[in-house]
Design a protein around this nucleic acid. Structure first.
Lengths: 133, 133
DNA sequence: TAAAACCATATAGCCACTATAAGGTCAATA
DNA sequence: TATTGACCTTATAGTGGCTATATGGTTTTA
C-alpha cells in the first residue's frame, strides 16, 4: 500500500509517517519505480504501535527504547516495566503540579469580582505584587 | 543596573531577558556608550510581573494581553477575569486528561509482573495489540 | 598585565509535529 | 488529447519558551 492508505488506516498524517521514518521509528519501506513508498502489513502494525504509545504520551525516545527491547525477545522484561513505572511517576507529578497551580489560580481569581476598573482589579494586583509565593 | 544584576534580582537568565525584549514583553532599555543595557526599577517590576505570570503558566501571548490592559486603567476589568477563567478551565482540562492517562497506564502496568521474558511481557503485549481504546 | 567576569550579537537546538512551497505521477474525464 | 484532480516527492520553516553555543568586545579584579 502507499503512504496515503497507510495514513488513513492508522489515522495519521502522511507527513507524520515520513517524520517517523526520518527519526528511525519506522523502517524505510521499498519504493516503486516512480519513488513512491510501498508499505506492508508490518508497517501498519509498527505504526499502530507507535501511535498507541503516543496516545499514552510516551516520548519518541521511549518508543525507540521499547522497539529495541522488541528485538531481544528472550531478555527479561523488567526494563520495560521500569520504563512504564517512570512514566507513570512523571504523569503523577505533572498532575500534582497542576493541582497546585489550579489552587493558586483559583485563589487569585477570588481576589476580584467583575465590573471593577482595571486599576482596581484584584487579579492584576495579585500578579503585580510579590505576595504570590 | 546592568542585565546581570537584573537577572539575579529576579531569578532569570540574562538570555531570557533579551528574549523577552525581542518578544516585546520588556521595553528596550537605554544603552551605555559601550552598548550595555541599563535597566531601571520599572524594569525590575515589569520582569517580576512576567515571571509571576509564567509561574502560573500563562502564555507570553496572555501576558502581552494583560500588559495591554494595564495601559488602560479605567476600562472594566472583566476581560482580565475572563482570561483567568479560561486559563483555569484549561488547567482543569489538562488535569482530567492526565488522570485518564494515568488510569490507562496503571492498568497497562498491571498486566505484567517483573521477571518475564520480553516475549511474554504484558506491557508490550498491551501496546502491540489493539485492545487499548 | 593578565585573567576572570561581564556584556554584545547571531544562530541552532529542544519536542513532536504541522504548514507551506514547488514540483513529479497517475487515472479519469471533457 | 488535454486537463483536471488526487496523489506522491523533497525541502524548509514555524510552533513555544526558552537554553546552549560560538564569537568577540568590555570591565573589573588579582
Amino acid at each position: 500500500m502507499r503512504i496515503g492508505q497507510l495514513a488513513r488506516s492508522v489515522g495519521v498524517d502522511t507527513q507524520t509517517i515520513r517524520f517517523y521514518e526520518r527519526e528511525g521509528l519506522l523502517p524505510p519501506p521499498d519504493r516503486q519505480d516512480n519513488g513512491y513508498r510501498i508499505y506492508t502489513e508490518r508497517h501498519v502494525e509498527r505504526l499502530a504501535f507507535i501511535r498507541r504509545c503516543r496516545i499514552l504520551e510516551l516520548s519518541l525516545a521511549e518508543i525507540h527504547e521499547l522497539q529495541r527491547y522488541q528485538g531481544a525477545p528472550h531478555q527479561p522484561c523488567r526494563a520495560i516495566n521500569t520504563l512504564l513505572d517512570d512514566h507513570i511517576a512523571q504523569v503523577r507529578s505533572q498532575i500534582t503540579d497542576l493541582q497546585v497551580l489550579e489552587k493558586q489560580l483559583v485563589s487569585l481569581r477570588a481576589s476580584c469580582n467583575d465590573d471593577r476598573e482595571i486599576e482596581a482589579c484584584g487579579v492584576l494586583e495579585g500578579l503585580s505584587e510579590g505576595s504570590m509565593q
